[in-house]
């Protein structure tokens, strides 16, 4: 009899995930149902305080703002990524272009964030350029507002959108666009009616890859944004480090996780399953071939 070594070989991975993913998750869930400790931490006592205190207007407004920023940033990212992916898929030097998309990953996230501060800051590169070009001496306030947060978020997550879009567009049969043009569609109509529905899978993936991390963004609004740019990630961090309300931080984290999970589930559910019923042989029976095709 053949022995199934599957469980044995996957044991290290199972152990790893249990230790560093499942266990912390369970800890966070339990923390959210406990009383807050005086100087941080938790009292080991059941309580619904954390979940109850989530229903406060400040938190709700931050939640809505986070949602809004995430939707706007994701939308802009996809709108930029679509033509990028398209042009990479249609170009003759795909490797070089893909390489250029991936290059930023070699630099640490935070370093790239500080680079943006160096560009957008009051004494930054952009303002110096503008000053040199004769714009106002006092410079412009680019940093520390919602616009800057969205700009940097788009920059950070653009590659995550370009890559899945590129890979689906690359597989797209471009003769379909010619067929659409042939059948009377304008260039724009051929993109909307034929290209978009056929790369839907890539678009869904790109949206998930950008929306989820942006929704949980922490460093970008903290370093690039102003007072009004606080997002859920910052609230959670503050609850841990400043307000020292660990149960509330845990409850918010859990709520965000649950919400995203449910949203993703429905998002993926709507994607139609590909149909693959191949008919390999066409049976011709004498002269009456047409009616004789068997299915």
């Amino acid at each position: 009899m053949k022995r199934n070594y599957g469980p044995r070989y996957s044991a290290p991975q199972t152990l790893w995930l249990t230790l560093f993913f499942a266990a912390p998750l369970v800890i966070i869930i339990t923390y959210s149902f406990m009383k807050k400790g005086l100087y941080g931490g938790v009292e080991h006592e059941f309580s619904l305080d954390a979940w109850k205190s989530m229903a406060n207007p400040t938190l709700l407004s931050v939640f809505l703002k986070t949602l809004w920023v995430s939707i706007v940033a994701t939308g802009i990212t996809i709108l930029i990524a679509m033509p990028c992916g398209y042009s990479i898929a249609r170009s003759h030097n795909q490797t070089i272009r893909l390489f250029l998309v991936i290059v930023p990953f070699w630099t640490n996230f935070l370093v790239r964030l500080y680079a943006w501060i160096a560009i957008l800051g009051n004494e930054g590169f952009l303002n110096q350029m503008l000053r040199w070009l004769g714009f106002r001496e006092s410079g412009f306030q680019f940093l520390y507002n919602q616009g800057a947060v969205i700009l940097v978020l788009v920059y950070m997550y653009l590659p995550y959108a370009i890559l899945p879009l590129y890979s689906t567009i690359d597989k797209f049969d471009f003769s379909l666009l010619e067929a659409a043009r042939d059948l009377g569609a304008s260039k724009m109509q051929s993109y909307i009616k034929v290209l978009l529905p056929n790369i839907k899978g890539g678009i869904v993936t790109a949206i998930l890859f950008t929306f989820i991390p942006i929704f949980g963004a922490y460093a970008v609004p903290l370093l690039i944004g102003g007072k009004d740019s606080y997002m859920l990630g910052n609230i959670i961090a503050d609850q841990i480090t400043k307000t020292r309300n660990w149960p509330l931080a845990s409850a918010i984290s859990m709520a965000v996780t649950l919400l995203t999970a449910v949203a993703v589930y429905f998002f993926l559910l709507k994607k139609p399953k590909p149909q693959h019923v191949e008919l390999d042989s066409e049976v011709l029976s004498g002269n009456d071939a047409l009616s004789g095709e068997v299915h």
Binding site: S175, A179, A180, N198
Partner: peptide, 10 residues
């Protein structure tokens, strides 16, 4: 009528 038919798969 295209060589690969170019039917819209969706």
């Amino acid at each position: 009528v295209f060589q690969s038919y170019a039917l819209f798969p969706h």
